[in-house]
């Protein structure tokens, strides 16, 4: 499966969904979908690397944790991310993510994300790979 991401509608907010031939790839695509809620990921240069780690008792909570960790890093570093390399272990995720400082003139960020919710939260196999998704509160 060629990895890709998409958004899906939620009554008040927006859903992020990632597809990949591996679970880790699907997690990476969900992260791209997260960035795309704020800005076109193509407009974000992968200049600076940040290491991200998280742990959770199951895959679904790990996905929410991963996205929440990115939301946190974006907030405190004032950065946007456009490239993600995820490694998954049992109940643990380790990633390198690349991005750049938010440039209001160039990026025109549309919205700030408050958090990744557990609404429509899923990590499941599909033909040829994995799909992962959740709704984010903006």
């Amino acid at each position: 499966m060629t990895p890709y991401w998409e958004h899906f509608a939620h009554g008040a907010d927006i859903g992020v969904r990632g597809f990949g031939s591996t679970k880790a790839q699907a997690f990476e695509q969900a992260a791209l979908a997260l960035t795309a809620v704020i800005v076109d990921p193509a407009a974000v240069a992968p200049r600076e690397a940040v290491a991200v780690e998280c742990e959770a008792p199951d895959d679904e909570l790990l996905l929410a944790d991963w996205l929440n960790r990115l939301i946190y890093e974006m907030a405190i570093r004032d950065m946007l991310f456009s490239r993600f390399a995820v490694e998954l272990y049992e109940h643990r995720l380790a990633a390198q993510v690349w991005g750049e400082g938010t440039d209001l003139q160039r990026h025109h960020p549309a919205v700030e994300i408050k958090g990744a919710t557990y609404t429509a939260l899923a990590v499941k196999p599909v033909a040829g790979g994995w799909v992962v998704q959740t709704v984010v509160d903006v």
Binding site: A56, L61, A64, D65, N68, I71, Y72, K114, G115, A116, T117, Y118
Partner: peptide
Amino acid sequence: GHQIGTEFLK
């Protein structure tokens, strides 16, 4: 508030 919500939700 967003961070508190996130942490306690988990």
